[in-house]
């Protein structure tokens, strides 16, 4: 049998984590009021879809509240579905 080259083991690559810069609009926000249409509108895209966390730069906790608030506002026709 021919010689096989010993398998090279690559050093585990460290994933670079850039610090997420918080959306200034969301600074210190705790309660998301579904009646606050002006605030919520910022989080709707041009098709009135909820923009993802990536785009909003929002923490997961707040994004969940935003989603709930937007859905409530939509049922009360304060925000569009589309």
């Amino acid at each position: 049998m021919s010689d096989r080259r010993p398998m090279q083991r690559r050093p585990p690559r460290r994933r670079s984590r850039r610090r997420v810069r918080i959306n200034p609009l969301l600074n210190g926000v705790d309660r998301v009021d579904w009646k606050d249409v002006d605030f919520l509108r910022e989080f709707l895209g041009d098709r009135a879809r909820i923009t993802p966390r990536r785009v909003n730069r929002s923490p997961a906790r707040i994004q969940r509240r935003i989603r709930v608030a937007i859905q409530r506002a939509r049922t009360m026709a304060l925000l569009p579905y589309e």
Binding site: K35, R74, A77, L78, L79, P80, Y81
Partner: peptide, 11 residues
Amino acid sequence: PWERRRLAYPI
């Protein structure tokens, strides 16, 4: 009363 406003879609 809270507001008289335009609806986001017709109801």
